[in-house]
């Protein structure tokens, strides 16, 4: 069953010089119990896409077109009040920076309990007990004591666990994790990834994991969508992305990952150029100016996501490569 289906989503920044497009017709879907990884460079619109679903876009940034069907409703058409009820109870969030994403003046247990009181109308005592259970669920030792700790008394990894507990408090069908490990040590990163995977299976929820770290989500995601300049350029099961990366951008991304087998002194390949700024995207394929396979036809029209011949689940937005494969 499809849980979330985004179709042709566009997001614009209102500027004095007129609107600048940052997300340009994204198509994405998440099925129940699936975990989707969304990969892309900073500013490619991966966070904005997810924030737009629940009405958390910053001022002056708006979803201007498309649909986002979640359980049959178009999230983009809901009122502010309806969206507030979706947040937390149907779609949970975990954020990037655990050091600053907890309110410093509320004890962590109370912070979780407060959400429960207002989301579910629980009594204070019941919410507190539930908060302790949630802390135990995310693997915090001695949860009764930790519930009374202030945020600044916990380490980064512990705080991220608390954030996850908060994201899970409303028992959501989908958890959106917006680069939740970027601010953590590598060893802690692995723990958090394991924890989320385990919780996903145990609670039978979908997970959307936003990151720029391909290697990190290799072990977590069922499917990966690669974003470039506000469009999906490749959408495929995780093995296909790593075994048969097809879009030139995906290939370049994977090519710039360091490997243990690589020669030590070799310079790590990088993609020349920078992504286009919002409002200054080139005509046709946005990646064309940086692409090694560029053809004159690339600047004619924006390429659409097409299934690969022989693999319906592997979709690529590059006619040039697709013809080469065919």
């Amino acid at each position: 069953m499809t849980l979330l289906e985004i179709k042709g989503l566009t997001i614009d920044i209102a500027r004095d010089s007129g609107p600048a497009r940052v997300v340009d017709g994204i198509d994405l879907s998440v099925t129940e119990g699936e975990s989707l990884g969304i990969v892309g460079e900073s500013g490619c619109g991966k966070s904005l896409t997810m924030m737009s679903l629940v009405g958390l876009l910053p001022n002056r940034i708006r979803a201007t077109g498309g649909k986002a069907l979640f359980g049959g409703r178009d999230l983009l058409k809901l009122s502010a009040k309806e969206l507030r009820k979706v947040r937390g109870s149907e779609i949970g969030f975990i954020f990037q920076d655990p050091m600053t994403s907890l309110n410093p003046v509320i004890r962590v247990g109370d912070q979780i309990a407060e959400a429960l009181v207002y989301q579910k109308g629980m009594t204070k005592a019941a919410a507190k007990a539930q908060a302790v259970e949630l802390l135990a669920l995310v693997g915090i030792p001695a949860p009764e004591e930790r519930a009374n700790a202030w945020p600044h008394e916990l380490s980064g990894g512990m705080r991220q666990r608390v954030m996850i507990a908060m994201g899970l408090a409303g028992n959501p069908k989908m958890l959106i994790a917006d680069e939740p490990t970027t601010a953590l040590d590598v060893t802690i990163q692995a723990q958090i990834v394991d924890l989320v995977r385990e919780l996903k299976d145990r609670l039978k929820m979908s997970v959307v994991w936003i990151t720029h770290d391909l290697a990190l989500i290799a072990g977590l995601a069922d499917r990966i969508a690669v974003l470039y300049a506000g469009t999906v350029v490749e959408d495929a099961p995780v093995e296909a992305i790593f075994d048969r990366p097809t879009h030139p951008y995906t290939r370049a991304l994977l090519g710039s990952l360091p490997t243990l087998a690589g020669a030590a002194m070799e310079r790590l390949p990088s993609i020349p150029g920078t992504p286009p700024e919002p409002g200054r995207r080139p005509p046709g394929c946005p990646f064309a100016p940086r692409c090694g396979f560029v053809q004159p036809s690339c600047s004619q029209s924006v390429p659409k996501l097409q299934a690969m011949p022989g693999d319906r689940r592997h979709k690529v937005a590059c006619p040039v490569v697709l013809e080469g494969v065919a």
Binding site: V54, R84, G88, F95, S101, I106, E114, Y118, G167
Partner: peptide, 20 residues
């Protein structure tokens, strides 16, 4: 960020203003 996090938990504006 903790204000955004509070919003993402579905807390009401009044609660976010007074507690966060």
């Amino acid at each position: 960020p903790y204000v955004t996090a509070a919003r993402a938990m579905g807390l009401t504006n009044r609660l976010i203003l007074t507690r966060y």
